[in-house]
Design a protein around this nucleic acid. Structure first.
Length: 288
DNA sequence: AATGTGCACAACCGCAATTTG
DNA sequence: GCAAATTGCGGTTGTGCACAT
């Protein structure tokens, strides 16, 4: 009974990777490319689980990984994206070139969590509720509660109404959005001036294909371009039927959609997220 | 100097989604 | 259409380091 382990545990190395293991993995991937993680350890001669190899490569060895020194701009973007997306670390990481979901998750849990809670340590808070003096429970992501069973906290489907990041699965949508920063905030984007509209690509739905120019913009973004390049599932955002076709065309039904962050937040948060947002007035939402 | 405590981060685990045969 | 395999993700844990006592 029970779940089959992804790989046999016996005879496998665990814990920290050695430099030699790293070398083996890197040289193997450089030679044969990524993928086939299940059989990679055997073919490469590593005594590691395939998942472990994949994780090591993606989070540490992959070229272009930035480590440490998260800039103010990046930090701000993480905070804003987390507000919008919740603990969708891979999505957030996708907007931060060179950063991994694991790093952002760790950074959030250790550093930003404190800031967001007014310098009260997440772990201290957890300690109050935990029998273990050392191990903290986890931070409560926006839209989750801490009193539920652990298995229930994973992939929670009904977030709290307040600032709830929406999650489900449905249509896939790749959308580029310029981040329109309030005055005084960092993170300028090359598209913000005169290009304050949404570029949308959708697959799986009737959608206007990206123009060549738009595709070119996607392909040649500089490394430090921190503009939002949303790549999310429409239904995951609790997408709203009145908007579907309009988003594909890059405009709201009334032609007002600006692609600005406020509009994006209104879109993401939906009813109750920003009741005062003009785009939400008289809008009838349908969840699917 | 020894010990305790908190923090940061790498790594692991289990589940769900996706792909493949 | 189905089952198995693979991949991806988010939550959780283990461990080493820094600092305080």
């Amino acid at each position: 009974m029970g779940r089959k382990p992804c790989c046999p545990k016996e005879g496998l190395n665990r814990g920290a990777w050695t430099a030699m293991e790293d070398d083996i993995l890197v040289s193997y991937i450089e030679k044969h490319g990524e993928g086939k993680w299940g059989s990679l350890p055997k073919r490469a001669g590593l005594k590691r689980c395939g998942k472990s190899c994949r994780l090591r490569w993606l989070n540490y060895l992959r070229p272009g990984i930035k480590r440490g020194n998260i800039s103010d701009d990046e930090e701000e973007l993480i905070i804003r994206l987390h507000r919008l997306l919740g603990n969708r670390w891979s999505l957030i990481a996708g907007r931060l070139p060179g950063r991994t979901d694991n790093e952002i998750k760790n950074y959030w849990n250790t550093t930003l969590c404190k800031k967001m809670r007014g310098e009260v340590s997440c772990r201290s808070r957890e300690h109050q509720a935990s029998a273990s003096p050392k191990r903290r429970p986890f931070l409560e992501p926006i839209g989750t509660t801490s009193d539920a069973a652990p298995e229930a906290t994973a992939r929670r489907q009904s977030p709290e109404p307040e600032a709830s990041p929406v999650r489900t699965k449905a249509l896939r949508c790749t959308t580029r959005l310029p981040v329109v920063q309030p005055a005084g905030h960092g993170c300028p984007t090359k598209t913000e001036a005169g290009d304050d509209h949404i570029h949308a690509e959708q697959t799986g739905v009737k959608a206007a294909p990206a123009t060549e120019v738009q595709q070119e913009q996607r392909d040649y973004l500089p490394e430090d371009d921190l503009s939002l390049d949303l790549d999310f599932d429409m239904g995951e955002l609790g997408f709203l039927s009145p908007w579907r076709g309009a988003i594909a065309d890059g405009v709201a039904p009334d032609g007002q959609f600006g692609g600005g962050e406020a509009d994006l937040e209104a879109l993401l948060l939906g009813p109750g997220g920003d009741d005062d947002h003009p785009l939400l007035e008289d809008m009838e939402f349908a969840w699917f």
